[in-house]
Amino acid sequence: MQDDVVIRVVAKVMIPAVMLFALYVQFHGDYGPGGGFQAGVIFASAFVLNAVVFGLNKGRHVWPARYNLMGICGGVLIYGLTGVGGMVLGENFLNFNVLSSDPIAGQHLGILLVEFGVGLTVAAVMVMLFFTFAGRTAHLRLLSKSDAHERKISASKKRRK
């Protein structure tokens, strides 16, 4: 696919747009439809598209493997620690009212942070899933049942010898 000019050009245009849209969905989530889950998936799809069009190696170059774990864990921690923030400030876990002097503003801030954590984790998970499964293709031969049967026969023949 790397050789197809149309796809390459379209992808180059599309990828920034996809990412921008993801950011919109992410940060508009507390006003309208959207939020971390959707944004995370959209954001990840940009990287997946990149990898599909320009190859796995280039894709890895843009999003190195070590980002995966950091993204996943970081997102969870942002979520959790935002909740803990409410606890530290004297209210129950996940109470965002106290995050700012104005309760409403505090709730906005809290949900923004939480959604950001969700988005980060989801994006990282999605990219990781793609690379994990795609990276295995070299080893993976999906066998039909008859194929497996043949292998078994040859294996048992070998054993007999």
Partner: peptide
Amino acid sequence: PILQVLLPLLASPFAAL
């Protein structure tokens, strides 16, 4: 009650890192 669940939950990403 919440710390009971939260503590291992939040320690988990640290352990992974």
